[in-house]
Design a protein around this nucleic acid. Structure first.
Length: 593
RNA sequence: GCGGGUAUAGCUCAAUGGUAGAGCUCUAGCCUUCCAAGCUAGCUACGAGGGUUCGAUUCCCUCUACCCGCUCCA
């Protein structure tokens, strides 16, 4: 392990430990030995998550006119998961390579021919031993030595560091056991023998109804997005909105992850915050505006325009989401990964991952995908209910087009279909039928999908806020100071309220008064035990941005002009200022909300 | 799913085939006029289940969880 990764593991351990100690995150069901891949949020974690959730909800719907909220059930008609493709891709029969544990879909194994060799095991000079029977297929034309070399490399990769160098691994008792033609029992890439086909279901299955028969099977949603698509028409019909507009939702989702890891980063139950922003197809924009604005370096994204095509909207949302992350203190740790054509699903036009630096690596926080009209079209097809909207403006504009102009649009689309990098082009008859509907003002909206993980966001914020430093006190004793430098907007506790001394009833009474005044407006913490310095330190560790101390000046000891003023102490930097009690709310509220 | 590692108090660690100790934290009291002060007292632990044994936290097995490396990440 490299020094850096050791340090990062140590850092992660400190963060996990702090999370438990201070009540941010606990292991689920800890008293019963835990529950794999599930985490619980303690008092501070619950506040932090709530603040993040509310910041998102505010930015996505409350502060906008064009986005509406939705709160759908976790359980839905399982037909939704068939339409979305989740049942198919989540419940495949998989076979695993005995050599590398790589999985392949059982029905997707290309037939292989060659000689089958068997070894009773492997060992290396490091003392490492593998007693598993190794069975693998030579590729046609592969030299036996290059085969052995390849097998050694695969074993070394699978075994990790303990096996030492690949070239020093000794393969034991080679035996030629068979020559096969067109066998589907070997991994197409590695040549390793495949194990039995097993269902490999990433969706959590349950039964709706007390009889629990196969007919009652449904799934805990693996994403919140599908509920938005499934309710698209209801929202559209009941809300007097026009495309472009969005529907957003926050909620739990569940995936039976093979390997939950990195603390809460990949867990089996998690919370998603998703927006589906519905836009007109570019062809509709073209007809209405006479042009389609496409993105170029330096394009103005500040305010949406009627002539925006999908990539302008996509860029716009990347920018909006970036601004959001800046607002919660993650601005300078973000990276972007633009998926290539190889990464993209066949229906997707673009997808950018917003990544964030975690102690265990730079990982995805949010994905922003341009998904065309794939999702709504799938639901239209499977449910047989129209997901089209009617666009009066489009109908009027299309009515003014000449037949030649219409044909030109159709030809342009046909050319684009033919040039698609992935998937098969839409047949000409379907394209013409689609335009027929379009010219009448009907289309299935396209969608831009910014999809964020709340738990990841919380972890990112904690990791970013974590700040540890060494301090030497007056007696030369070293101590470690931990401060969580949360942005005040998302800090679980906004203000700590302290009487300078506990055994002076006047100070305590005044402090309780200030506490009562503030706690109606923001989450506050009252603390009168131990020294004032310790109380500051406790709050620093909880990430509380402000401390208020009621001292003798508050009581008028230093004259009337300081009476009813308090010490306001800032977590970052530790500077202090005197503020009148009557002015506290006006000063603090804008900083914390 | 595979390989390796770990599991003792809230946290970080120690010792031990005869049921465990420290530091920090925490609680209470005293004290204390601004950045983890001091004094006194106190709470709290051998991940779960089985086996060996007169006796297991310690040895063995199984399970669970977490960490690391593969794999996976629709």
């Amino acid at each position: 392990m490299s020094t850096e990764s050791k340090n990062n593991t140590a850092l992660m351990e400190k963060i996990v430990s702090l999370c438990k100690r201070r009540g941010f995150i606990y292991q689920s069901s800890e008293i019963y030995g835990g529950c794999g891949g599930i985490w619980d949020y303690g008092p501070l974690g619950a506040e932090l998550k709530r603040n993040l959730r509310e910041a998102w909800w505010k930015a996505m719907t409350r502060e906008r006119e064009d986005i509406l909220g939705l709160d759908a059930g976790i359980l839905m008609n399982p037909a939704i998961w068939k339409a979305s493709g989740h049942v198919e891709t989540f419940a495949d029969l998989m076979r695993e390579c005995s050599l590398t544990n790589k999985r392949v879909r059982a029905d997707h194994v290309d037939p292989q021919s060659g000689t089958v060799l068997k070894y009773s095991g492997a060992q290396s000079p490091t003392g490492w031993r593998w007693d598993r029977t190794i069975t693998a297929l030579t590729k046609s034309g592969e030299h036996i030595e290059s085969f052995r070399k390849r097998i050694r490399a695969l074993i070394a990769q699978n075994a990790g560091e303990s096996a030492g160098k690949p070239e020093e691994i000794e393969l034991l008792n080679e035996e030629k056991i068979d020559v096969v033609t067109d066998s589907v029992d070997f991994h197409p890439e590695t040549g390793g023998m495949l194990g039995e086909a097993r269902p490999f279901n990433l969706m959590l299955k349950t039964y709706l109804g007390p009889t629990a028969t196969e007919a009652d099977v449904t799934y805990l949603r693996p994403e919140t997005a599908q509920a938005i698509f499934a309710q698209f028409k209801n929202v559209f019909d009941s809300s007097r909105v026009k495309v472009p507009f969005g529907i957003c939702q926050i909620g739990k989702a569940f995936r039976n992850e093979v390997t939950p890891k990195n603390f809460t980063f990949r867990s089996r139950e998690f919370e998603q915050m998703e927006l589906e922003f519905f836009i007109k197809p570019d062809e509709a924009v073209q007809i209405i505006s006479g042009e389609v604005a496409t993105w170029h370096e330096g394009a103005d994204l500040t305010e949406p325009k009627p002539n925006w095509g999908w990539d302008m909207w996509h860029r716009y949302w990347v920018q909006e989401r970036t601004r959001f992350y800046e607002g919660i203190g993650l601005g300078n740790v973000l990276e972007y990964y633009w998926q290539t054509n190889d990464d993209l699903a066949h229906y997707a036009r673009a997808c950018v991952d917003i990544l964030c630096e975690f102690p265990f690596g730079t990982e995805e926080l949010e994905g922003i995908a341009a998904r065309s009209d794939f999702d709504l079209s799938q639901h239209q097809k499977h449910s047989t209910k129209s997901q089209e909207v009617f666009d009066e403006e489009l109908k009027t504009a299309a009515g003014q087009l000449s037949d030649d102009q219409k044909e030109a649009l159709i030809q342009k689309r046909l050319a684009a279909e033919a040039a698609k990098p992935k998937g098969s082009p839409m047949p000409e008859a379907d394209v013409r039928a689609w335009f027929e509907r379009l010219f009448k003002g009907n289309y299935v909206p396209h969608v831009i999908e910014p999809s964020a993980g709340l738990d990841r966001m919380a972890l990112a914020v904690i990791a970013k806020a974590f700040d540890e430093s060494e301090k030497v006190d007056d007696k030369g004793k070293k101590e470690t100071i931990t401060v969580l430098r949360f942005h005040p907007r998302i800090a679980p506790i906004k203000v700590g309220v302290f009487p300078l001394l506990k055994n002076k009833p006047e100070l305590v009474a005044k402090a309780r008064e200030v506490y009562a005044l503030l706690k109606k407006q923001m989450n506050c913490f009252y603390d009168e035990t131990a020294s004032i310095g310790r109380r500051y330190a406790r709050q620093d560790e909880a990430g509380t941005p402000f401390g208020i101390t009621i001292d003798f000046e508050t009581l008028g000891e230093k004259g009337p002009e300081l009476t009813d003023t308090v010490t306001l102490r800032h977590r970052d930097g530790g500077e202090q200022e005197r503020v009148k009690i009557t002015e506290l709310l006006a000063k603090l509220l804008p900083l914390v909300s």
